[in-house]
């Protein structure tokens, strides 16, 4: 004759909770009758990867396709030694963009072509930073429109005359005639040369 199993509570019938085939306390879930078949199929298809087929023994097998769990790396260092004396003086790194482009929306890049401005340090292929928001004045190097073409020249306004002056003795001044309106496309604020 088998000895009856020990009951945890003599007033409650059944097995001691947690001693069944699953090795832990189980729970009843309600689902609508119409989806019972569906749920059964889904559970069946999941069986491979769940613990349902690895019961009986209480040995937990490692998952076949484990989801990697990321563990945070401790980012706080334990203070040891001296703190960096520079800590309070950290500044943003300087940015060439910020330096060369104070007005983002109105700044355009233009490629210089030819030799008409070499004495101003502008050579064929140089990159010109052009700001359209700047009001052109005497002495500025500007991009101007002459006969539908863009040209880079120094703007000279003196004695009531407007001249677009090349920075190369081999080129001639462009003198605006009476009634001819000067059309400045933008003011050159820097030129960038790539050396290497």
């Amino acid at each position: 004759m088998n000895t009856p199993r020990q009951r945890h509570n003599p007033n409650r019938p059944g097995r001691t909770p947690g001693t069944g085939p699953y090795g832990e306390i189980t729970k009843v879930m309600r689902i609508p009758e119409s989806v019972v078949d569906q749920v059964a199929t889904i559970l069946e298809s999941c069986k491979e990867r769940t613990f349902l087929n690895k019961t009986k023994g209480s040995v937990m097998l490692p998952a076949e396709n484990p989801t990697p769990a990321s563990i945070p790396l401790y980012s706080h260092r334990i203070p040891a030694g001296f703190p960096s004396p520079a800590d309070d003086y950290i500044d943003q790194r300087i940015s060439l963009d910020q330096h060369l482009i104070p007005h983002r929306e109105s700044t355009f890049f233009v490629r210089a072509v030819g030799n008409s401005m070499i004495d101003a340090g502008i050579f064929d292929g140089d990159l010109l930073v052009v700001d359209k928001s700047i009001e052109p004045v005497h002495g500025h190097i500007v991009i101007a429109v002459i006969d539908g073409e863009l040209t880079v020249k120094r703007l000279i306004q003196q004695n009531g005359e407007t001249i677009l002056r090349p920075a190369n003795a081999r080129f001639k001044d462009i003198v605006l005639k009476e009634g001819q309106e000067l059309s400045v496309w933008g003011v050159v604020t820097s030129t960038i040369k790539t050396l290497v």
Binding site: F108, V110, V113, S116, L150, T151, V152
Partner: peptide, 13 residues
Amino acid sequence: NYTTRWDELVRAG
């Protein structure tokens, strides 16, 4: 693409 490609920038002589 005058404003988005380095090799297609507008040119000035």
